[in-house]
């Protein structure tokens, strides 16, 4: 599955072009910060509303750089055992039993069962112990507890992990680290200090149009433009969850599937649920935007 490692892009523009090549259209800011991350080996903290392509960026970067993507999805209650490493205690038990049966002295056991072969690598550990450099994506870091964040600090600044029984494990390769956050919780200063910061927002109209066109090539240019404009209008409303790029793309796909050729009131009402996901939002959008669209009869004639 591995691609041949292409030369690491050495300028911002090269990186931007390369990202475009794999289907991710970066904004100027995104390209610049990604470039810095690659050049400086610094982790990047990517924040922004849900669905603007934070996770996609990591995937695209991994593809461009020809690296594997190691992903750690964070959630409340995530602990070291699931993120870093765990001792494979079943294997340890078996080893002990096997050896006592063979008549070995128990004295030597202690050293042996805490060896590398009994270690279960979890994403973080895998990322730094991998012989080839990877892209490490720590997704939704704001969902974890502060303790976990503190544990990450050692990893992020020095790329090393301390295992009490084994000692310090240093990275064999420098991963590119992306942390994403939906900003549901303020991250600690210490963590922020170690990262470059990238705020991804809803893209501008032209940029979004380009993305939609790139992802849903079947849709005609004028129709895509219309779609993106409607989305921009919807975003301007006071919604609980404004539609993001992911929703624009979904909507474009849905409309393509339905064979719609223009956005009129009927089509809008039927497919509204694709872009707006709260009941109160639905009402608001239907009322404000839906009525402004042309009647279904008018466009046909």
């Amino acid at each position: 599955m591995r691609r041949t490692v292409s030369a690491v892009p050495s300028t911002v523009d090269e990186l931007a072009t390369a990202l475009r090549g794999v289907g991710y259209l970066p904004g100027a800011r995104t390209a610049l910060v990604s470039h810095l991350a690659v050049q400086l080996d610094k982790p990047v903290l990517v924040e922004g509303p849900a669905g603007v392509g934070k996770t996609e960026l990591a995937k695209a970067l991994a593809e461009v750089l020809g690296r594997d993507l190691v992903r750690l999805q964070c959630y409340e209650g995530l602990d070291e055992a699931k993120a870093l490493y765990e001792w494979n205690y079943r294997k340890q038990l078996l080893a002990i039993q096997a050896r006592t049966a063979a008549g070995d002295g128990a004295a030597t056991l202690d050293d042996d069962v805490f060896g590398h072969e009994f270690l279960l690598e979890r994403p973080l550990m895998r990322a730094i112990a991998s012989p080839t450099p990877v892209v490490l994506l720590i997704d939704e870091i704001d969902k974890t507890d502060q303790e976990f964040e503190a544990m990450l600090l050692e990893l992020l600044s020095d790329f090393q992990i301390t295992i009490p029984e084994l000692g310090r494990i240093e990275a064999t390769s420098q991963p590119i680290v992306l942390l994403t956050s939906n900003n549901s919780r303020e991250l600690t200063e210490a963590l922020k200090r170690r990262c470059l910061y990238l705020w991804l927002d809803y893209p501008e109209l032209e940029h979004e149009l380009e993305i939609v066109r790139g992802r849903v090539p079947g849709l005609s240019a004028s129709f895509s433009r219309r779609l993106v404009e409607v989305i921009a209008d919807v975003r301007a409303l006071d919604l609980k969850k404004p539609p993001s790029i992911a929703e624009s793309i979904d909507w474009a796909r849905a409309l393509l599937l339905l064979g719609a050729d223009d956005i009129d009131q009927d089509v809008f009402r039927d497919t509204l649920s694709v872009i707006v996901k709260h009941r109160t939002d639905l009402d608001l959008v239907a009322e404000r935007i839906g009525l402004r669209l042309p009647e279904s009869g008018a466009t046909a004639g």
């Binding site: 100027a28 800011r29 610049l32 810095l36 924040e47 922020k192 470059l196 910061y197 705020w199």
Partner: peptide
């Protein structure tokens, strides 16, 4: 100028408010 500004922003400003 833009690159210069964005670079500084990425390294110095660490939240939307800061930005």
């Amino acid at each position: 100028r833009e690159d210069f500004k964005e670079t500084l922003a990425a390294t110095l400003a660490k939240s939307p408010e800061d930005r």
